[in-house]
């Protein structure tokens, strides 16, 4: 039998040294599970944030829509008296009063069907032209508010329609986009903290659970490997850790058969050597 005696008396294995484990099962499955956990938390957070953002911004928009709606009603009441939009001087006061009521309102303006600003809480803007998309928006349903965005403002508006159904112009209210962002940023921060906290805690739990689960698998494989090594090097029966386990019993048979083959070949080699030496 190939039992290699080391100089200091230990028996070296006949099998090559075991291959190092570079990517353990725990590491592989942890990576998969933690990735799934991270994706789930991010996706859940994403959906929660966007739902909140959409409900919150629509609520803010509907509040300002209501303000615009009341201005529209007052202006249209005057239009229905047969006055031209340009002539409604008291509208400037109405706009300025509405702006005064809410510090978040950047500007309220009324423009004619061609886009010329007729009344504006920023008096310097009177006579200028509004963006083309706002003029285009007047073509929509007369009772439906339209929304648009400016550089840093959100816009909500309504068309002004006379009693003949002709669109005379539009009224728009600008409010800061940062107002909505500020309103939802609290949730975003809380969600981020929640995601991070849950990710850390449950990743640790996942890794611990996987160590328990795959640690056992690794130990069993390690024991079988050692048993194979011992039997192949020193002989003797393979030790079955878990009697009744079909795989381990098959493995024990494998070890025994391997050892038997090695012994047979070894005996045969010795016998051939003995015969070879016969002259």
């Amino acid at each position: 039998m190939d039992r290699i005696e080391q100089p200091h008396g230990t028996t070296a294995s006949v099998l090559p040294p075991p291959r190092p484990v570079r990517w353990s099962l725990v590491r592989k499955v942890s990576l998969a599970l933690v990735s799934i956990l991270l994706s789930t938390l991010l996706l859940a957070g994403f959906f929660a944030y966007y739902k909140f953002e959409s409900v919150y911004s629509s609520l803010v928009q509907s509040r300002y829509s209501f303000v615009v709606f009341t201005i529209k009603k007052r202006v249209e009441d005057n239009l229905n008296l047969g006055l031209a939009l340009r002539q409604l001087r008291q509208v400037q006061d109405i706009l300025e009063r509405e702006k005064m009521r809410d510090a978040q309102v950047i500007a309220v303006e009324i423009f004619d069907a061609r886009g010329e600003v007729l009344f504006d809480t920023d008096r310097g803007a009177i006579g200028s032209r509004v963006a083309a998309n706002l003029v285009e928006a007047l073509k929509g349903a007369p009772g439906q508010p339209f929304g648009a965005t400016d550089e840093d403002a959100l816009i909500v508006g309504l068309p002004l329609v006379n009693n003949l159904g002709k669109v005379e112009g539009g009224v728009v209210l600008r409010y800061p986009a940062v107002y909505v962002n500020y309103g939802v940023s609290g949730l975003l921060l809380e969600l981020s903290k929640g995601i991070l906290r849950n990710l850390v805690v449950f990743s640790i739990l996942a890794v611990a659970g996987l160590y328990l689960l795959f640690g056992r698998v690794g130990r069993r494989l390690d024991a079988m490997e050692r048993s194979l090594n011992t039997v192949m090097t020193n002989g003797g029966p393979a030790v079955v850790d878990r009697p009744g386990d079909a795989f381990e019993e098959r493995f024990a048979d494998f070890v025994a058969k391997s050892r038997e083959a090695v012994d047979h070949i070894h005996d045969a080699t010795q016998e051939v050597g003995r015969l070879d030496r016969l002259q």
């Binding site: 090594n229 192949m232 391997s258």
Partner: peptide, 23 residues
């Protein structure tokens, strides 16, 4: 593979190769 199963199979194959080498 370079995990515990891969290491076990490596030793397992080594036993077969050892017997094969002797033969």
């Amino acid at each position: 593979s370079e995990d515990e199963v891969g290491r076990f199979i490596h030793t397992f194959n080594a036993a077969i190769r050892y017997a094969d080498g002797l033969f």
